[in-house]
Design a protein around this nucleic acid. Sequence first.
DNA 1: CGCTCTTTTGAAGAGCGTCAAGGCAAGTGG
DNA 2: CCACTTGCCTTGACGCTCTTCAAAAGAGCG
Lengths: 241, 241
Amino acid sequence: MDMQRKDIHSSEIPVVCRACEARHGGVCGALSPEQLVELSKHSTRKRLVAGTEVVGQGEDMGAFANIMRGVVKLTRMMPDGRQQIVGLQFAPDFLGRPFAEESPHSAETATDAEICTFPRQMLERLVGRTPDLEHKLYQQSLKELDEARDWMLTLGRKNAQEKVASFLFLIATHYDPETVDGSVFDLPLSRADIADFLGLTIETVSRQFTRLRKDGVIQIENNRHVIVPDIERLQHSAGID
Amino acid sequence: MDMQRKDIHSSEIPVVCRACEARHGGVCGALSPEQLVELSKHSTRKRLVAGTEVVGQGEDMGAFANIMRGVVKLTRMMPDGRQQIVGLQFAPDFLGRPFAEESPHSAETATDAEICTFPRQMLERLVGRTPDLEHKLYQQSLKELDEARDWMLTLGRKNAQEKVASFLFLIATHYDPETVDGSVFDLPLSRADIADFLGLTIETVSRQFTRLRKDGVIQIENNRHVIVPDIERLQHSAGID
DNA sequence: CGCTCTTTTGAAGAGCGTCAAGGCAAGTGG
DNA sequence: CCACTTGCCTTGACGCTCTTCAAAAGAGCG
């Protein structure tokens, strides 16, 4: 009977979604073919270069999005300019803060990225009708909450070396272009971004990179390319044990 | 018609829930009378003295709970003993991490408290059948995520004085026994807990209390009782302006 | 090759941590 | 009722880590 429904023309999964769904396990996975059709009518794919602001802190959020490729940083700023990156999002993460008028932070691409945006009301309507969708969104927010709290420990209780090692470990385990064991990768963030993520200055970040390199925990090529010979040694440097 | 349904015996709201529901706006508000009856059969109210561990980090969570009174601190610890409070929860917050076997952090009462516990599977079954319940849980996790990320800015980018002022401001605005404008209150945390929440030492916390007192931003009586003559001045000291 | 932007390196200083002593309030026992 | 203990908080002196300010060294690009 499911077979029959799939044969109905209007319930075919849209072409744009097909490749996406295959590669990722994002929130769209909770939607029926009909809902995907409806959503895809109002959604647009965008290619963004690194450093593009998707939504500003305190701004009205007209749209939500799914990250298809690249890294997006969530930043919170103080009136005097001090800023802190409060979250990093990777594909296939959902991007947005449902049920709020204003965004509590700004979202900016850290790397070149590709996102699939759709109107905010579109999603909120779908959420009301689709418990599975809300369930997926809830799961992601729980995951982000766990990660945020993990990072609070890093920010509050680790020293500079442990912070930098923690960041490298985070990237090695989350950002996985095509490496086998995550021991070779390109950093998606500049030194300035890393500093804003770790609550340090760029100078301190740079010094700790140098120190980890001299200690043989990592190798660095062209500032961005990192090789980790022994991931457990890095983990130990991060104080994760 | 609603009147008629209330008269049906099996759908009466349990006595234990009635007073609770009236006072709080917790997750139970999403449940039908029948579900409340079912839940209350398996739930137990507990009075806990300050410093009681509700669930340990990495432990199996047998039960979830609602906070009826008091403050619960969520703590994450490093292998060498360094620890960080990653969240404070007040009544009527929900306490627990759905869809995870182990708790990512320990939960301990900071003050004397009263909680209403129920088996984990009980809740997870109800969640599957009650979209409204999951919606409420989702809303709370979004709120906690916003708060956690706010605190990341405090931990990463504020100095000791701003951190302590931020903490006082948080308590003044969240913890509201019976004060009119939140300018007089008792601290729910010891100096050691405050230090663990702010990523500082108790000595630094103490020095900043003294400094804020000498500057006239706050008055302190008996270590725990705080008076804030001008909440906006405190807010300014916290760098929130 | 020269320009700009990013990253590294260096030297000096501030802020917070560490260690140690002392104060204060509540509880205990003679 | 008073000496003593205990737990929590405050204060002081000193040192270390990280920031700040400054300049040099790379990296990317026309």
